Computed example of a mutant assay.
Amino acid sequence: MVSGTSENDLPAVLQAVLDELRALDEPKVRAVNERHGDDHGVNLTKLRAVAKRLKTRPALARELWATGDSAARLLALLVCRPKGYGRDELDTMMREARTPKVQDWLVAYVVKKSPYAEELRVGWLQDPDPAVAAAGWSLTADRVVKKPAGLDLDGLLDTVEAELKDAPDRLQWAMNTCLAQIGIEHPAHRARALAIGERLAVLKDYPTSPGCTSPYAPVWIDEMVRRAEARA
């Protein structure tokens, strides 16, 4: 267990952390994750506990990322200093990230906190790599909710309407999220967002657990608007 160890002996610290991650690997967790395209077997609550104990360790984070191991990369994203990465470095990391969870955490915990987030968002939106483009759409959906000023919402809906139906799974999911968030957050565009969702019927039959909201955009939009109106 590594706790409070100086990074002056970085190779030893790295090895101790990797050994701990290997000890935490559980076959049952790995089997579940593999069904979703991930390739690690560490329970994420336990992984977060390791990160909490380690605190912020930029040098260690880079070494963990460099291993290529998914559990190590997830830990790296929790103990890194997001603003310490350059634009090109983040772009490279996104292209190196092979699994959905690593890609999602890279966007959520690092790129969104970076001063290069907007530049990367714009560049990634039209990237030929679907996973990279999905990251661009995830960042766009976040802006739709939190900082929509300057966004061309009609243009985004045009692209969604033209490309959503045939997009690869991860890209489709991110574009669909953006479609739903436009409909939820922007009443002036709600009717069009609903119409696009209904016509394309993307994720209409997606299995949804009881108590959860369907990712099918028309249902998602209607439910979130209903909840907002109930709180008003």
Rank of each mutant, 00 (worst) to 15 (best):
L10E: 04
T67M: 11
R73V: 02
T67E: 11
R62L: 05
N8T: 09
Y85P: 01
G86N: 06
L24E: 06
T67W: 08
A61V: 03
P27D: 12
A72R: 01
T45R: 15
A61F: 02
L74R: 06
S3D: 14
T56R: 07
R87H: 08
N43Q: 15
G4D: 10
R57C: 01
L60H: 01
V32N: 08
D19N: 15
L54T: 02
G68L: 08
G86S: 08
V50E: 01
V17A: 02
E89D: 13
T67Q: 08
L47R: 02
D38T: 06
T5I: 12
P58C: 05
V50T: 02
T67I: 06
L18I: 13
A49N: 15
N43T: 15
H36W: 14
Q15L: 10
L44V: 12
R22C: 09
A66C: 10
V50Y: 01
R53W: 04
T5N: 13
C80N: 02
N33V: 04
V13F: 07
D9E: 15
D88I: 06
L78S: 00
P11F: 05
R35N: 06
E7I: 10
C80H: 01
T67P: 10
A12H: 14
N8D: 13
K83N: 07
W65H: 06
K52P: 03
S3V: 10
E34R: 15
R81G: 00
R35W: 09
D9A: 15
V13I: 10
G84T: 03
L21Y: 04
R87T: 03
D39W: 12
V29E: 07
T45G: 10
V32W: 10
L10I: 11
D9G: 11
G37E: 11
R53P: 03
R73Y: 02
T67K: 07
L24T: 05
G84V: 01
E20L: 13
H40N: 14
L64C: 09
S70C: 10
L24K: 04
K55L: 10
P27C: 11
K46T: 04
Q15V: 07
V50I: 13
L18P: 04
T45Q: 14
A31G: 07
A72E: 07
T56A: 07
S70H: 08
E26I: 09
T5Q: 15
V79E: 01
R35L: 15
V2D: 08
N43R: 15
A59Y: 03
K55E: 13
A71S: 13
A59R: 14
D38G: 04
A72D: 06
G41T: 09
A16V: 05
R87K: 13
V13Q: 08
R35I: 13
E26T: 13
C80P: 00
T56S: 03
Y85T: 02
E7Q: 14
L24C: 07
V13W: 07
N33T: 08
T5S: 15
A76C: 01
N43F: 12
G37F: 14
R35E: 11
G37L: 14
L44C: 02
G86K: 05
S6P: 05
P58K: 06
H40Y: 14
K52C: 08
R53K: 09
L14V: 10
